[in-house]
Amino acid sequence: MTDAVLPTWRDEEWRYADFTALETLAPESFGEWRDVEVAPGATWRECTVVGGSQPGLHRMRITIGEGGRAELFAVNAGADYTRVECVVRLAKGAHFEFGGVTIGGGEATREFVTRLEHAEPEATSNQVVRAVHWGTATGNFLGRIDVARDAQKTDAAQDFKGLLLERGASTNAKPELEIYADDVKCAHGAAIGQMDEMAGYYMAARGIPPEAARKLLVRAFIADAFAGLEDEGEQERLLEAALEVLGDAV
């Protein structure tokens, strides 16, 4: 892609994007990447809340050295189209942990796009994404995992779940695996649905008001994305940031 060419729906990694919003961005923004190098044996972690009133692209390239570990946890709560894109290359014995939540109402599209290259043996990765949307909003997760021929003993997992609080909302999931090694563990799962009425009934039967029960259920749903984050303070900060967006939507 050159600076003068916008992506189109024919580009698989952009197929669910808001192209009206993309047209408002400066062409050079599509070539802007943030590069992160994780040294062999080192640990890098970032916890972030992204999104504003204007369309935004947040693009990262992470290279993890042998035995290194990279962790990225994010809340995507943009009021307009907001895309978080992460390209990761894992060396031998490296690990990548990703936990993300897209959340919000209105008409906005919010998405995570990840591309993981398991380039060497014994690397592991885990991705957990939750989407909570209402109004006519959309939450997307496009996750691709490439396992090279020599990357034996790879262990990679993706888990996506979408919760739609109103009928007009939607989510899209596109898990993709391309595996050339033969001694690997690769798994992905995707589920989309509405609030669990039976769980709400169970809580109401024990005296919990319906509004409080719904908020507790959404809180537990969102918290799954941050279960891999060992810093309890950051875990709580991200969770509260997501719940603040939720407001009175439930």
Rank of each mutant, 00 (worst) to 15 (best):
T43A: 11
P175K: 04
V245Y: 15
Y201S: 14
A21D: 11
V113M: 09
A213V: 02
D196M: 05
A205I: 00
K215N: 12
W9H: 13
E32R: 13
Q152M: 00
L22I: 05
V184A: 01
G189K: 09
K174M: 12
A199F: 10
T24Y: 09
A213E: 03
D231G: 12
T114N: 11
L229Y: 07
D248M: 05
T2A: 10
V84M: 08
A108C: 11
V147T: 04
V250L: 04
D231F: 15
P175D: 02
P210C: 06
K215A: 04
I179C: 07
A204C: 03
K92C: 12
K153V: 08
L163N: 01
G139E: 01
P40H: 09
V250A: 08
G65H: 10
D183I: 02
L142V: 07
F96P: 01
F96G: 04
A137L: 06
E66R: 11
Q235C: 02
R59P: 08
P40F: 10
D146N: 14
D224W: 02
R45G: 10
L90P: 00
E12I: 03
K161T: 04
L246M: 04
R34M: 09
A212I: 15
N140D: 08
A241S: 12
A39G: 04
G51C: 00
L90V: 01
A21C: 02
K161V: 01
A205M: 04
F98D: 08
E122Y: 14
L57Y: 03
A108W: 12
E176I: 05
A4L: 11
A94M: 02
V84E: 05
S170I: 03
T138Q: 07
T20L: 05
K161F: 04
E28S: 14
W9P: 05
